[in-house]
Write a protein that binds this DNA or RNA. Structure first.
Lengths: 201, 201
DNA sequence: ATTATTCCGTACCGATCGGTACTTAAAGGC
DNA sequence: GCCTTTAAGTACCGATCGGTACGGAATAAT
């Protein structure tokens, strides 16, 4: 059994891995998987290639970890939205959250989950597939939440949760694309508001 | 003054440039600007690098031409939509057209104008900027059409054409993202239908 | 036939790609 | 003092990147 001492043998890491991952996330967010070279990434992270490989594995793994981090740190609005009491509030919070998150000052416009790797050649297939799964998980979570709303009578029994979920996710994805296109926060909030006019209740 | 004879001197081109451009368009559509290497492109086009450079200039130019071709051949629904008599029909035609075009059998899913180059490193900046301009032109055309609808009384005077235009384009962009994520044609048509529930008239 | 012009194919360019071997540095355990 | 273990830095790997020089092949004009 290893001792309870927190110190590990060997030379201690000379950089903050969490901070480095945050920098890498921004590079992927801004330039996409294909467009972010190891030179770009390590320069932004302030470490050498060898340190990156030792700490994170390889480029694919780094992207996977960046997405994981982004899920916790860049898209909290999603978890927030799912916890709202009514389906309408869920959709509202999700869409306005997407508008805010896609236009956060000091951060790249748009959404890593959309522009990180949308279309891709063979080398970026893993990243693309990871994002496809990520977006589809988002639809699933929304669908489950809306199904609950139907069960609870919060949504009319005629509502189809999966269609509502896909609609909300589609608008959120579109908001990310529009943010990259230069749309402002105010403009995208009006888009979110407009989208809510379609809400059944 | 050159003769009226249609024949040019020199060895005639040994391939169909239009067909080659169509193949290249699909590669960009499927893999994005960064993900489409010259090897991929020329292999799909069935010509050598030198023939490509002679006929189309370089990779940037080839992409520009592919986008031009795609605007005429892949997104006719947009021009169709703008010609519809009422604003509602414009939006309906545009959104359902996007759903159909993003899930055309035998073609890559999604939209070249979205996934061709969304996030990009330095080498794909030109392509990215061209697509940003392309998408924003789409918003402008819709805005002008909806402004006309307000002027004609087809839309209420309280409607804001630019917001409606951005909403429609946002949903269309989201549809493209969802198509890449694997959403089916039927699912995306339901998204388009759902989005139209937000329409003011 | 000769010449001018254009196209095609090979073979190559320097630069950059993601990834790694190898050495040196810094820590703990003894 | 060691020895082990892990991290950091350099220098490099083969492969691929976008782009091109060059020579042969095919056509029209003369």
């Amino acid at each position: 059994m290893d001792s309870g001492a927190g110190t590990k043998p060997g030379r201690p890491r000379g950089f903050d891995a969490e901070a480095a991952l945050e920098r890498a996330t921004r590079v992927f967010w801004e330039q996409g998987y294909d467009g972010a070279s190891l030179a770009d990434l390590t320069a932004a992270m302030g470490i050498t290639r060898t340190s990156m490989y030792a700490a994170f594995g390889n480029k694919d793994e780094l992207f996977r970890l960046a997405l994981e981090r982004y899920t916790q740190d860049g898209t909290e609005y999603a978890a927030d939205a799912l916890g709202r009491p009514t389906a309408r509030e869920v959709a509202e919070t999700f869409l306005h959250g997407a508008a805010l998150a896609s236009t956060r000052p000091g951060y790249p416009p748009g959404c890593l989950g959309v522009q990180g790797s949308l279309a891709a050649g063979p080398t970026a297939r893993n990243a693309r597939d990871a994002l496809i799964a990520w977006r589809n998980e988002g639809v699933t979570h929304l669908r489950d939440r809306f199904q609950r709303a139907v069960d609870e009578g919060d949504l009319p029994a005629t509502a189809t949760p999966v269609d509502l979920a896909r609609y909300v996710m589609t608008v959120a994805n579109g908001i990310a694309v529009q943010a990259v296109s230069g749309a402002s926060r105010a403009e995208l909030e009006r888009v979110a508001t407009a989208a809510m006019k379609a809400w059944p209740l």
